[in-house]
């Protein structure tokens, strides 16, 4: 299954919904969509990972790049809905301390407003 990436504007943020497995094959598609938003200096980007069943280091690298690009114009970049296996990858690389990670969309949208 190819990864599906869709975007949606909600409240103050642009939500990036990712569905499928993010690996060396599919991460370029995710990267393209995220960098399009950072190029447009989107003020708040929320990456919805609820439907991501697998993520390798190329997926993590894509998100780091998005976070760093967003930081350049002082935008907000957060992750939401990580499954246990995906969360573990962030914990093993200690990136759970670097990214703003929210449990659900409602909380994420409230936090990103502030």
């Amino acid at each position: 299954m190819k990864v599906e990436v869709t975007t949606e504007s909600k409240d103050h943020a642009v939500l990036v919904h990712i569905k499928g497995e993010v690996d060396l094959y599919s991460s370029p598609e995710v990267r393209k969509q995220i960098l399009k938003l950072t190029k447009e200096k989107t003020p708040a980007i929320l990456i919805d990972l609820e439907n991501v069943s697998y993520m390798d280091s190329s997926g993590v690298a894509t998100l780091i790049e998005g976070l760093q690009q967003c930081g350049k114009y002082k935008g907000k970049f957060a992750l939401v809905g990580l499954r246990a296996s995906v969360k573990e990858v962030f914990e093993l690389t200690r990136l759970d301390k670097v990214f703003e990670i929210h449990k659900d969309l409602k909380t994420a949208l409230e936090k990103i407003k502030t």
């Binding site: 690298a61 990858v89 093993l92 990136l95």
Partner: peptide, 18 residues
């Protein structure tokens, strides 16, 4: 080093951790 936050180079760390 994991405090060097940058894309790439995490694969070996993951392999060795697991």
């Amino acid at each position: 080093r994991l405090d060097d936050i940058r894309p790439g180079g995490l694969g070996i760390h993951l392999i060795k951790s697991v």
